[in-house]
Amino acid sequence: MARFLFVLLLAFSLVPQPAHAWGRLGHRLVAALAWDDLTPQARARIAMLLEGEADPTLPGIASWADELREHDPDLGKRTGRWHYVNIAEDGCHYDAATHCKGGDCVVEAIRAQTAILADASRSKAERLQALKFVVHFVGDVHQPLHAGFGRDKGGNDFQLQFDGRGTNLHSLWDSGMLKAADLEEAQWLQRLRAIPLAVDLPPQPLSPPSAQWAEASCRIVLRPGFYPSKATIGDAYVQTWRPLAEEQLRRGGAELAVTLNAALSR
């Protein structure tokens, strides 16, 4: 019996598991980059909301929405569709009625949770939960495959061999390419902070342009070569695409900061 259980567990460990956007490291990086650009008012209000948290920092709550699946399965199930939107089949043109019925997608979740966060009449618990969602979902929407094809579950069903192990395209973008660089978090932040943004980010209203973010991420998925032509990939793919993943992390941090400033600096 013990031998059977061992074999079963070993087999399970070799099966690629469902991936989260950016993984824990990527979400922490987006949150830390955002903190750099927050106003003093936004920082003070975030600090008040985070009082009592085990890790009362933006990076400390950045993966909370993924961890719901273990700690609060009911809420995790109800908010599962808030992590992504499938628009690649439609040329990356977002239409709420088609792609986000009932508001169940990352585009509308960012807007709805930002509104709750900005509403001073809401309870601290409601605003804290909204903050956790906003920090996470802005990171999610900048991972290209969270705005990709529904037919392969955002690349989760696109199987690959990388670095001698089985994986999938979604997992590769979440964490595989980042881990391959073998950098510590502080080194990543130094590297990402040095990336100039392609455009200046103007102040935004309380309704973040999350649809535009999703469409921009989706357009990356449609670029030639994003989906490898061979099942086994190596350093060439990583060297080509990791700089773009890094730019998306950098942009996610900057746009998260603008969103939080708009919601909390009034």
Rank of each mutant, 00 (worst) to 15 (best):
M1D: 12
L9G: 01
A11C: 13
S13Y: 01
L14P: 14
V15H: 13
G26S: 03
H27N: 15
A31L: 00
D36S: 05
A44W: 01
E51F: 00
L58T: 03
L58K: 00
G60N: 07
I61V: 10
L68A: 04
L68E: 03
P73A: 14
D74P: 02
G80T: 02
H83K: 06
G91H: 06
D95G: 10
G102K: 02
A109V: 07
A118Y: 03
A125C: 02
Q129R: 07
Q129N: 04
L131G: 03
K132Q: 15
G139V: 05
F149N: 13
F149E: 15
G154P: 08
G154D: 12
L160I: 12
Q161H: 10
D163H: 07
L169K: 10
L172C: 08
G176I: 05
L183K: 14
L183W: 08
A186D: 12
R193V: 06
I195F: 00
A198C: 06
V199E: 00
L201N: 05
L206D: 08
Q212A: 10
Q212N: 07
Q212R: 14
W213R: 02
L222F: 07
L222W: 05
G225P: 03
A231L: 10
A236L: 03
A236G: 05
V238K: 11
W241G: 04
A245M: 08
E246N: 07
G253H: 12
G253F: 11
L256T: 03
V258A: 09
L264Q: 14
